[in-house]
Design a protein around this nucleic acid. Structure first.
Lengths: 195, 195
DNA sequence: CCAAATTAGTGATCTACATCACACCGCTGA
DNA sequence: TCAGCGGTGTGATGTAGATCACTAATTTGG
């Protein structure tokens, strides 16, 4: 549980929080005390399917995926988290039960970590932070709904092209296999979309 | 904007809130002042695709669907809301932009309504209510994620059987056509799954 | 620095599901 | 009361995309 936070990272984090709530200097400093900082290596596992989930993470730098391995051993990625994204197994974290997802670093990754206890404490202590998390959760929910709608309305190729246009930089950082697991399409079919 | 709330409904609503936060009698009474009450008829429209969304709704009784009509005129149902469910177009409501979804009563429906302004006010005035909405939003997000995962991992028949086992009573209240639009499967294919 | 593993492209098949077409039934409302 | 319309079942056919099988290229870690 180290405490050496780079000023640049904390500034970016502050900007992130201030998208939803405005904070004074002392308020932001107070908020930071609830977080810890970690550096992970590529392939490191943050959350393992079936085990407890004690933290929610904010990605300072790097890239993390949240995925589910089904009974046939096939992977399904339900979320990418790059710089300035939050990631955890929501259900397991909030209800304190076993993880459905594997959360794994796809690159060397730097994180701010918030434990379950600290999450409840920061929300109880700082109304503004509870407000932040409410707004953030609503926002995530809306985005998730949009993604579900994409599944209901678009075929695989359209979903791929949508991803290309929305996150062009992400495509460079991930293998096609990984993209396929996110798009819900086989590696072979994705390959045939060309480009 | 009437103010005649049946005691039974308000008691159920209180129980709903108390799943996430505990409220004293005066606190609950204060909270209720931010809501209004409405009765709708079958086929009435709460939100129309393309227009502004001024309220979020809690269903006292009845049944409401949130759906999207695509360019080909095909309907996709993103959510059912029965008794004790919240429903609105999240994105349009929170970001105050145009609705993606149609929200329509499938039965005569009774609602508690919370306007955008009142939502922000109740959250600012009552920390506990902000806490409620934070927890509720996280819960909804996790449920939504689970549904997306179902799409990624299960075929149409499995999704149908899952729905049957999870919401057996819902099946009685909806036409197969409507169920098909929720499951992301054609009416004909659903029909062939048989009873 | 090289062996092993992982990633990527491509053809041949297979299959779940969509779409089209039609027939039938039970409401509902002028 | 009966015309019409939405809901439902079912056959025939079309198709997106899965799966299998193989080869080649690229990455990686010991």
């Amino acid at each position: 549980m180290r405490r050496t936070l780079k000023p640049i990272s904390t500034q970016t984090f502050r900007q992130h929080l201030e998208k939803f709530v405005s904070l004074s200097d002392p308020e932001f400093e107070q908020a930071m005390t609830y977080f810890t900082h970690r550096r992970m290596k590529k392939h490191d596992v943050l959350v393992r399917q079936g085990s407890k989930v004690n933290h929610t993470y904010w990605v300072v730098s790097g890239l993390v995926t949240s995925s589910y391995t089904d009974v046939k051993g096939k992977d399904h990625i339900i979320q990418f988290a790059t710089e300035n994204c939050w990631v955890t197994d929501q259900n397991a974290f909030y209800n304190q039960n076993e993880a459905t997802f594997n959360i794994v670093c796809m690159e060397d990754t730097e994180l701010f970590c918030l434990s379950f206890e600290n999450r409840e404490r920061i929300c109880a202590d700082m109304h503004k932070m509870e407000s932040f998390f409410r707004k953030k959760a609503n926002d995530s929910f809306a985005k998730q709904q949009k993604r579900l709608l994409t599944y209901l309305t678009s075929d695989a190729k359209m979903r791929y092209e949508l991803l290309l246009s929305e996150y062009p930089q992400l495509i460079q950082r991930l293998s096609k296999k990984t993209l396929a697991a996110y798009l819900g399409v086989s590696r072979e079919t994705l390959s045939r979309f060309g480009k």
